[in-house]
Design a protein around this nucleic acid. Sequence first.
DNA 1: GTTCTAGAAC
DNA 2: GTTCTAGAAC
Length: 747
Amino acid sequence: MDMDTDENSNAKGKEGQGKLIMVILVGAPGSGKSTFCELVMGSSSRPWVRICQDTIGNGKSGTRAQCLKSATSALNDGKSVFVDRCNLEIEQRADFVKLGGPQVDVHAVVLDLPAQLCISRSVKRTGHEGNLSGGKAAAVVNKMLQKKELPKLNEGFTRITFCHDESDVLSAIDMYKSLDLHNMLPHGCFGQKNPDKKVQLGIMKFLKKAENPSKTCSSANADKNSPTSQPTQEKRESCDKKEESSCRMSRNVAMESEKGESPGVRSLEGKITQSDPPTLAFPSISTSDFKFSHEKAAEIIVEKVEEFMDKLGNARLVLVDLSHGSKILSMVKAKATEKNISSTKFFTFVGDITKLNSEGGLRCNVIANAANWRLKPGGGGVNAAIFSAAGPGLEVATKQQANSLHPGNAVAVQLPSTSPLLNREGVTHVIHVLGPNMNPQRPNYLNNDYDEGCKLLGNAYSSLFQAFISIVQDKYKSVKGINECLGSTPPEPQKHSENSHHKFKRENLQNLEISKKWKGSHNSTEGLNQNNNKTVPKKSKHWGSWAQALYDTAMHPERHTNSVLETSDDVVVLYDIYPKARKHLLVVARHEGLDQLADVCTEHLPLLRTMHAMGLKWIHKFFHEDAPLVFRLGYHSAPSMRQLHLHVISQDFDSTHLKNKKHWNSFNTDFFRDSVTVIDEVSSHGKARIMDDERLISMELRCNRCRSAHPNLPKLKAHISKCQAPFPSTLLEDGRLVVEPSNAPLS
DNA sequence: GTTCTAGAAC
DNA sequence: GTTCTAGAAC
């Protein structure tokens, strides 16, 4: 977070000279709003008035209207104003924002501190005016945080400062303290950590979070910055003040909990703080539904844990299992003891991985999920439990990272700010891991090939632990979107951006994350992409001579009468000369300059609909003349041939021209953009989503019906010629698959 | 987009 | 030895 007040205030000082400031504090009870105001007002040369809804009612509870009135009159008196109320929802702050104008800058200061901390402060609070104390505090804070809507500039704020921890808060206090009557703070968004993902997609930008200057300017506070950290230490080491004792404590925690004794409700006592060591809780991978040998798995777990010991720093790994009699836990524990692995850094724990904090008193900022290859909720066991506990946001956030996972890989997903798993359990990331499968009933069955299986399981744990270490090493290394903050000056934007970008790319590859890009045509976006994300291809693409055939046909259909089936003002229809299925034709747009899907925007919607309708018309012709076929209509994310063309292709893929992986995957992964989806996306976002990641094309070969994997193309082709499984449900939705009416429903 | 072909994988 | 993939050239 940029708290570089000297430089910024000098630079912008003149701009808003003499203006008043209204600071709308945003934060749950116990987040420190009142303290913030008091500390600023205690030593500021600018006249401030604090409007506090808790006190304004003179004993009764105050109202928003009273606060508004009071704020207005303070501003009229030439005073700057703190609006000291929770203001967590847009609606709650809207009327205050309206008071801004030429004479008044409206700022938000967001005290987005850990829920646990707010709760513990609220519980302990005695002299607070709001009288929110006692056991109800936790419930109230949690409820309020569920509704939290982080402020955005487009609500009318000129500046938003996000504070995520004590040191952010102290820096922000210093910054506001330093304001006299004349200087102002630069406009924009500062310190945001969890941008709105939906918006982020549109203008994704990888940006290193700038070094936090507060670390230097308030270093004196940093050490004692832990009124929050003290209780934990005291609690954990209550029987012995010495360092070594914490090892024993940790071991005790593990051992005791396995006997069913809860270590306590630390969350409500405020014992859980940011100073808790970073902890990864993970289930045993592959030993449950995937029926992997427990003995072999235990061996691998301990081996991998040992391998990562030195890289952990103060971080911890915890193997979690729901059951008390867990065979895998006792095996792992025995082997770990045998190998003298530090029980501070690694221990086992019995409990529900989605309730480790609230029920087990074990704070884990990262948990691993034994995911399925599709990274979807459901199934059962840990996967179902984690997706359910995390709320729908996890699926959305996961989708933004990857569509699928190969055995042996892991992908880390940051939980959205609304996730109950984050707010209740303090889990910031879920790392999905896919292990090897020894269950013939499940995908990627290894047929008891334990050579391969052990290798994959080892890889799975390596990927998991590495992903965890990456999260710990730099919690700000994650993608930072800038959404509405565009146009504002990001704090020290160039300082580390390139470095972190490379790091991020490395991680991406390692984790097999598949990035989804919206190739925007907004100027601002392109500028950013060019500067900061070199992986986004430029809009203008060079087309080889062999790529011009469709363009030529579209522009001069009269020269191609032998191949063209139909011509209209907008499109030409022709058979693909190298059909990849029994029926494969192309509907080619005739608009000059419309080379590919990436060039399509809102103005082309009518054209897209025309192309789709033309495709359907021809499909219906085939229905009358051929064996029952199923069709799909769509575009390649990155076509080889110039000129926008819609593929209309039957789903048998029975063709000698289908010869390689690219042929298959270009029609059977997300690289293929369904026409229906494209029209939806262009309608709602103005652009279609482009998925031209090479990894999609090199993905394993999977049957388009039963999704079984096959080692090479001939084997896949042999399989699909026989497979009669129903198509995946996602394809059956919204008319992506076109089936002859008499032949429906598919099953 | 395809064809050709070296060499990896079986 | 044969099958299959993947990169270069067009």
